[in-house]
Write a protein that binds this DNA or RNA. Structure first.
Length: 852
RNA sequence: GCCCGCGUGGUGGAAUGGUAGACACAAGGGACUUAAAAUCCCUCGGCUGAAAGGCCGUGCCGGUUCGAGUCCGGCCGCGGGCACCA
């Protein structure tokens, strides 16, 4: 049994070193010292009560960065907190009766207990939850500041309304157009809601994307597309007969060049003309009502069958004297974008074509040349994005140009004829932050009959959520609270009522990164701390946040700057961003007597069978881990079985961090085995006399190569490649015949290189090998590049681009000589058959290609 | 539907436009062992060949290039987002 005793005991080692870090305050950040600061942040978790592999992966990545930066002489801030408001706690309260505040705090405690054993280098002294009144009170103070600066306003907006539960539903709670709880057909309803004027910053948020050099290109592109800047023209189409006092319908278009192909005008069911008609025409009213049955999300609207209603109205065609176009109400026209009206050009737009076919509207070629037919046959869709638009010549009397120029020129032409107004529009809409829910940050305003909407006085903040609420019925408990709403008007002192809407949880997560710089400040931030710690040097989180969370945070940083809560230098709060992939797992299911699926946890399945009953399970390909599909692996089991270091090592090995990774139990076991090997190797090397063994050159070169590669791969977020480098170096060290002294240096270096991944094991090896102090505080090794240069290189020889042979030559051999040697190889001689090559390409140090 | 990604052995993946499959996992074979576990060693894209080698091969079709997994165009499949999930 002695072999067993020699195995490394992860849990003992991990507990020991966590206690040592705690005692030394190794990860407590303070604004002092002469080291450069480095702020690394992972997106904080929603306290669901259990950590999952995605958290382990995300926070381990951040930890690798944090520990590496610490070792390279930075003063590191690496905080953690809780995105604690949100629907799940409120839903749970309705189901179980447990108050959200109670359950949230329990879940935070439970998650923290699971996170601590992973040994992340977090400064827990800065921890807060967004549901702490100290946090959301500061958020309320900022809301009032934003009001002062004109960044907040109220307007009507549509919500999903459940007519049975009499409550507003989140998009997630609408399933196939029905309320998830009641099953009732969901309706759209207009409510007066609070908005942030993020659209004032459309241009700035777009322009500043260019400066985000260390953000993934795809995220920048998604944000730019989301903001959606377009140059177009607003053209008033004159009604042939006015509707009330409305004389025209303005259409915004980015493709005025297709005007000659227009065959109808479509307006939103919420357009003033539609509303005017609705009042007098029950058929219009019925159609508009059906449009309002649709869910509010863009996806549902775009995918829904395109329906129209002919109003019988018509408008004059702007460029074809005497011609008119019919006006339809279309369920696909958004009132929120542009003017709520579009002209349809079926020949050049697939959606318009579908609509025209359905309702037998003409399909006219906008780009017809003299002598060509105007009407387009049934299947003659002309591509919408015509590159060369010669029609311009015919249409506007100007030369042929490329597409965007053609459009710009057309806009100028329309403007010159006074037919419309060129303008830039953005797709980005203002941020509706009102939520008709309890478990969120109360909006700190009061409604007074005399004074209107009045912000709460700052000295009365925080406006705390009342604890004595019930969840026995749907809707917002704040609305039915007997006394909480009653308050004196902050302006006139007369009895008034509190706002009962709370804030979108995206508000909470739009500035927590700033709060971490001074979590106890009596103001939202402390300027000295914000100036020192901001920006976040490295932000890490799921790519699912690529648009909303990151865009809102960018807006918030600007708004906070205007209100004096962040310095000018922090308007772009995240210097570098890394978006990680998801952790996935196979799904195991059996079926009940009604063929409905029953899902099973991976821990209950072995060899395709349920361990309990032996029943075979269906295996569904890997998908994002989700509780509902039960394809979740609880990291706690893995950590107990293999140790935190093995879990950390495994989640970062194999898969590149930006890509999804499939969880396999064997992978975690393999990680554990490898760490055990390293531990045994350390033990063996420690027992070697320094002068035992021989030549050190190969080991030394391998060590410096490992230092160079691992460092580069950590710095570029290629954590999987760094692990491959470490495997390789460990293999070389394990077989090395170098001196004891060289091997001891090598294993200490290996421990250092591994320390961001496996900090506990590394500390243990460090101590075992006589390292000074904690490895967490030891300076990162530096590669001696002069040792890495090889004297000779092996060049592949290609014949017509296919590898056929290779030659080994001195690194700096001149091209001509390499060429000569290549031509002398058997493979080339054989291929040439006595003839001469057409061409020889020699890329020094790389390759030789002989072209026949 | 729209926007953005991704697609390489049995599996995860590696590859500044320059030797496709590094490094691992799984599998198979072997050593050690009474045996098993653990550990160590070997093989491991396909076809072909005694071997040397040859041919094919990075989702599909085409293009650029001396040379394409990598760049361009068009498809197919999968994933993320679509403004009240976080």
């Amino acid at each position: 049994m002695s072999a067993y005793d020699a195995r490394y005991n992860a849990s003992a080692i991990e507990t020991k070193w966590q206690a040592a870090w705690e005692k030394a305050g190794t990860f407590k950040a303070s604004r002092s010292g002469d080291k450069p600061k480095y702020y690394v942040l992972e997106m904080f978790p929603y306290p669901s009560g259990r950590i999952h592999m995605g958290h382990v992966r995300n926070y381990t990545m951040g930890d690798v960065v944090a520990r590496h930066k610490m070792a390279t002489g930075h003063n590191v801030l690496h905080p953690m907190g809780w995105d604690a408001f949100g629907m799940p706690a409120e839903n749970a309260a309705m189901a179980s009766g447990i108050h959200p505040q109670t359950s949230t705090h329990q879940q935070i405690a439970a998650m923290k207990e699971q996170m601590k054993p992973l040994g992340w280098s977090l400064d827990w002294s800065r921890e807060f939850a967004t549901c702490d009144p100290e946090y959301y009170g500061q958020q309320q103070a900022m809301f009032i500041d934003f009001m002062d600066k004109g960044l907040v306003y109220r307007k009507n907006a549509v919500v999903n309304w459940d007519p049975v539960d009499m409550t507003v539903l989140a998009n997630e709670q609408v399933i196939d157009g029905k309320g998830w709880r009641s099953g009732a057909q969901v309706e759209r309803r207009e409510l007066t809601q609070w908005f942030f004027k993020i659209s004032d910053y459309s241009e700035e948020l777009l322009a500043a994307i260019d400066g985000l050099d260390n953000w993934p290109a795809k995220v920048k592109l998604m944000q730019a597309n989301w903001i959606g800047k377009s140059r177009g023209i607003e053209i008033p189409f004159q009604l042939t007969a006015p509707v009330g006092d409305i004389a025209d319908i303005a259409c915004y278009s980015t493709r005025p060049d297709t005007m000659r192909g227009a065959s109808f005008v479509a307006i939103s069911s919420d357009h003033p003309v539609a509303k005017a008609l609705e009042a007098e025409n029950p058929d219009v009213a019925a159609f508009c009502a059906s449009c309002r049955k649709m869910a509010t999300n863009e996806e549902a609207m775009e995918k829904a069958e395109k329906l129209g209603f002919d109003t019988g109205l018509s408008v004059a065609h702007p460029t074809e004297p005497g011609a008119t176009l019919p006006v339809w109400i279309g369920n696909f026209v958004l009132m929120d974008y542009g003017t709520g009206a579009v002209f349809g050009c079926p020949a050049h737009d697939q959606r318009d074509l579908d609509f025209a076919r359905k309702y037998k509207l003409p399909v006219r070629n906008a780009f017809y040349m003299p002598g060509e037919a105007v009407e387009v046959g049934n299947d003659a869709l002309v591509p919408a994005k015509t590159e060369t638009i010669e029609f311009i010549d015919h249409f506007a009397g100007i030369g042929a140009v490329t597409s965007q120029e053609a459009i710009d020129t057309t806009i100028d032409w329309f403007e010159a004829k006074d037919l419309g107004t060129g303008m830039v529009k953005y797709r980005l809409r203002d941020w509706g932050l009102s939520r008709q829910r309890y478990w969120g940050c109360p909006i700190p305003v009061v409604h007074c009959d005399a004074c209107g909407v009045v912000p709460e006085k700052k000295e009365n903040l925080p406006v705390k959520l009342p604890f004595d609420v019930t969840f026995d019925q749907p809707g917002n408990p704040l609305d039915r609270h007997p006394t909480w709403r009653d308050v004196d008007c902050p302006a006139c002192g007369k009895p008034a009522q509190r706002e009962t809407d709370t804030m979108d949880t995206f508000v909470d997560s739009s500035w927590y990164f700033a709060r971490f710089t001074a979590p106890n400040a009596a103001t939202p931030t402390n300027m000295a701390d914000a100036e020192y710690w901001m920006n976040v040097d490295q932000y890490i989180g799921g790519v699912e946040h690529a648009i909303l969370h990151l865009l809102y945070s960018r807006f918030f940083a600007r708004a906070m700057n205007i209100c004096g809560h962040l310095p000018d230098s922090a308007v772009e709060p995240f210097d570098a961003l890394f978006t990680q992939g998801m952790v996935t797992h196979e799904i195991y299911q059996t079926r009940d007597e009604n063929e409905r699926p029953i899902y099973h946890l991976p821990e209950d399945v072995a060899d395709g069978k349920l361990t309990a009953t032996g029943e075979a399970v269906e295996i569904i390909p890997s998908a994002k881990m989700s509780k509902s599909k039960k394809n979740v692996v609880d990291p706690v089991h893995i950590i107990k079985q293999y140790g935190a270091d093995a879990a950390r090592w495994f989640v970062l090995s194999d898969s590149p961090p930006e890509r999804d990774v499939e969880w396999t139990a064997s992978g975690a076991e393999a990680a554990h085995k490898h760490l055990n090997r390293v531990w045994l190797l350390c033990d063996r090397i420690a027992k070697m006399p320094d002068d035992a063994g021989g030549d050190d050159a190969d080991l030394t070169r391998a060590m410096h190569k490992a230092v160079q590669e691992v460092t580069l791969n950590i710095e570029t977020f290629a954590f999987n490649k760094a692990i491959a480098n470490l495997y390789e170096f460990t293999g070389i060290l394990g077989k090395s015949k170098a001196s004891g002294a060289a091997q001891k240096l090598a294993i200490r270096t290996l421990a250092q290189l591994m320390s961001p991944y496996t900090p506990h094991l590394s500390e243990d090896i460090w101590a075992h090998q006589g390292g000074t102090g904690l490895i967490a505080n030891a300076p990162w090794p530096v590669a001696d590049e002069t040792l890495l240069v090889q004297d000779t290189v092996t060049l592949p020889i290609q014949i017509n681009g296919k590898r056929r042979s290779e030659i080994t030559v001195p690194r700096d051999m001149p091209k001509e000589q390499v060429e000569k040697l290549a031509l002398a190889t058997d493979a080339v001689i054989r291929a040439l058959e006595g003839g001469a090559p057409k061409k020889i390409i020699v890329v020094p140090g790389r390759i030789v290609n002989v072209v026949l």
